Simulated assay, not measured.
Amino acid sequence: MEPPPERPWDSPSVADTAAEFLSLIGLKELEGCLFAERLAVVAVGASPRDKAQGQWWMAAQWAPYQQEGAPMQSCILVQTRFRSKHNGVPVSSSLKAYLTWQLETLEQEEQECLELTPHPTEKRTHFVSHEYGMTVTRTLQEGGAEPQCHSFSYGRARLRARLLEGASLLLLRVLARRQTMPPGLVFPAINSEGDLCTFSYSTLGIQRQAVGSAETEVFVIRRAVRASTGAPSVWHSSFLPSGHLAQLMQIGAPVLMLLQDESILSKSGRFAPQLPFPKEPLEWDEDMELYSYFLDRKVRWTWGQGDLGLCQSPARSPLVCPGDTQRGQGTNILPHTLSSVGKDPGSCPPHPGIVSMGEMCVCAHPTHPVHPTAGGAATLPCCLPPAAP
């Protein structure tokens, strides 16, 4: 008999890739994702300025955490709350998760309430991590009946790089602030029912979206939750550059969550321009064409210095003559150096026709061309032999 096909949520390769990705998330990067935000709940298809039917709230912050018999530790507390109406019936949900900064879930509790009179329904799912793995407890209470509880556990080996809902929400902020993600990003996960599944993330790019009466650019991420049974649940999350949500929508749901506070836009910054191709570092010394161009310019410069005969003595300074050394055009440097102010003119290199004129030595050869200086106050000759006729 052939072995059963490997399920993606149990695949070692998926866990290895996910663990490597999580290990690259830095503590400083996570700290930029610790803030609170609030969205309005509106009906799908409604105007962004329509009256809200409810609210969705999320906050992430550092908090102390301690299990019984264990020392206290600092972790990240992620909380969400949702309240709205469905067909006139009040509905609410909440999430409270304690995470390590590697996004490992220490404890999480999710609650859903349907306030249907006279039989309200409440469902809770509690996750707690321990040295042997993780225990999941599901509780369902309908009206005044006794609550129904069901518990089961997962071994430590099956929890490697596995995300829960609270960790997934924080990871979305990290991806949004990066404004990029690798293709085919998949994590082993556990859904709100406590079942093994996968969370997959992909980008839908930068889009335009209304926020109140304004319009802005948002970075859209698609998250799909796939379990062994049933259709996948797909969420579209639209983020501002700061990592704040502008819109949160579950495909097929009658409501969505929208940002209506335009004041957030002034603090969110702007997206970096997206290049149509990846930016490559310029290694000019390894590029044959660029390196050849560099050598050619270097040789020209070296020859030019030699032809002009620059003096290397630190006690002398070259004089710039606004005339070509051969044709009397352009700007060049005299092939001799002049003595500094107060120096002995005899210290100039021997040259027929060089005489002293006060503070400097100039050429007095009658056949050499003479050119005006840049200031126009004196004349300076070119001291090379005149051009051949």
Rank of each mutant, 00 (worst) to 15 (best):
G330N: 04
V225R: 10
R300V: 08
R208F: 14
A253R: 03
E217N: 10
G353K: 06
P350L: 06
V370C: 07
T302D: 10
T139Y: 06
G243P: 00
E29G: 06
E115N: 13
C149T: 15
G69S: 07
R138E: 11
E112W: 09
P281S: 04
Q207S: 05
W101P: 12
F127Y: 15
Y293T: 14
R223N: 05
L114G: 02
I25W: 09
P276Y: 03
I25G: 10
I221A: 02
P349M: 14
H86D: 02
S263R: 13
G243E: 01
R160K: 13
P8N: 04
T80D: 00
D344R: 10
W235T: 12
E109H: 08
T135Y: 04
S317T: 15
K343C: 08
T17W: 04
V174H: 01
Y291P: 00
S237I: 05
R226C: 10
D307L: 15
A18W: 12
A161D: 06
Q274I: 07
Q141C: 08
T180D: 13
S340P: 05
S13W: 08
V225W: 11
F35W: 14
W56S: 13
L116A: 12
W235S: 05
A315M: 14
L175R: 04
P188Q: 00
L308Y: 12
E29V: 11
T367D: 13
V211Y: 01
F277S: 14
G306R: 12
K343Y: 05
A19L: 13
T367F: 05
F35G: 07
P273G: 02
L99A: 01
E280T: 13
T229P: 01
P5M: 01
S339F: 12
M181V: 05
E6N: 06
R208M: 15
S268K: 03
A246L: 06
S192T: 14
V320Q: 10
T137N: 01
L319P: 00
P90Y: 05
Q108C: 02
K51Q: 11
A189Y: 08
Q73R: 14
V255M: 11
I190D: 01
L169E: 03
E110S: 13
L275R: 15
R81F: 07
F271R: 01
A60W: 06
H119R: 02
G212L: 05
Q79M: 12
A364T: 13
Q108R: 00
G230R: 02
P12I: 09
L169R: 04
